[in-house]
Amino acid sequence: MLGSPFPLLVLLCSFALCGYAGVRLLEGDWLLVVLWFAGAAVLHDLVLAPLYLAADRALLATAGPRRRWVNHVRVPAVLSGLLLLVWFPLITGRVSERYVRVTALSADGYAARWLLLTAALFGGSALLYAVRVRRGRRRPPDPG
């Protein structure tokens, strides 16, 4: 089965452009570049996403039916995790030596600042939760 003609033509046109750039992208170490390109998608779809989905399911399972506090864990965890994902070379210190030699800047403190930010995020979230709980006690329960 061919499918509808318009998408087919659009895709073939797109592949031609991708192919033109692709052969140039692969001029160097083509196998490694292919691994990086496809590996990025595989790593996201089959490693990163299942990991965070599993973590979220574990969190929900722990929470049981009383799920009010779940987002007070989720939100800071997502924000902190995202910062780690983006800045892990500096936070883990794997580029520290080069960073100092190249820029004359200090590479210390990235991990400490990430931990402080994480502490602030979870701490702020906990504070917000405490405020919500206190307000909930004073007010009659929400009918919704």
Binding site: G28, L32, V33, W36, P89, L90
Partner: peptide, 20 residues
Amino acid sequence: QLDYVFPGSFYPLHFYGAWV
């Protein structure tokens, strides 16, 4: 972040990668 682990020089990878 000066973490040059990608397979080759940044300029061609990021330029041709952008077009793909």
